[in-house]
């Protein structure tokens, strides 16, 4: 083997470089091919399945946004328009009124309005709602479950991995196609339970 043979040295280095370059290009093509089989043109967004939600309160505390991009929404079609609303009033209200001490919501984000005897309308003020699900818990256990949580896409940053989904105890948050970005109760049906065990 000759020492210091300039051209040979450079030639060898170039040969190794070109070979490695080709190998790396091949790897990239391979990864691309593996992935391309399953790509989807439309994006995915995060959303809550309200039928899986257990109102753990983490939507309010774990979202990267403050306040959370999760808000309570109201499926009016399911609402009983009750006077004694389990989502609006504390379980032991002094009176069925709009007095702050009787409200369940920690930020008073639910507005109650009299329609006609005996019906009352409840509307969520999303600017105040923090997504804590306290009203959802009340409505689901005492009422019809017309109040439920949804991720609002005008607020959601669509993180690569949703910080709430990571800790959701019911695994209720999943990626769904961006062209149908909501799972609002009433229109959206509960998926039939697969586990019978």
């Amino acid at each position: 083997m000759q020492d210091n043979s300039e051209p040979k040295n450079i030639e060898r280095r170039r040969f190794i470089r070109n070979g490695m370059q080709l190998a790396l290009a091949g790897t990239l093509v391979g990864v691309a091919a593996l992935s391309v089989k399953k790509t989807r043109a439309s994006g995915m967004v995060w959303q809550i399945d309200p039928f899986k939600c257990v109102q753990c309160g983490r939507c309010a505390t774990e979202c990267v946004r403050m306040p959370s991009a999760v808000k309570c929404v109201h499926a009016y079609n399911l609402c009983g328009y009750c006077d004694l609303c389990g989502g609006y009033l504390k379980p032991d209200p002094n009176a069925r009124s709009t007095a702050a001490e009787n409200q369940l919501c920690p930020t008073a984000a639910i507005q109650r309005r009299f329609i006609e005897d005996p019906f009352y309308e409840y509307v969520i003020d999303e600017n105040l709602c923090i997504g804590c699900a306290k009203c959802v818990a009340g409505c689901t256990s005492f009422g019809n479950g017309s109040l439920h949580l949804q991720i609002r896409h005008n607020l959601c940053k669509n993180c690569n991995e949703c910080a709430i989904a990571r800790v959701c105890p019911a695994e209720a948050i999943s990626r769904i196609p961006a062209d149908k970005p909501y799972q609002i109760k009433g229109g959206f049906r509960k998926t039939p339970a697969k586990d019978k065990g």
Binding site: Q55, A133, V167
Partner: peptide
């Protein structure tokens, strides 16, 4: 860690009832 218990500061507490 995911799965580690966190208390719910917004719990609807009906235990007293």
């Amino acid at each position: 860690k995911a799965g580690k218990n966190m208390d719910n500061p917004y719990k609807l507490d009906v235990d007293q009832f």
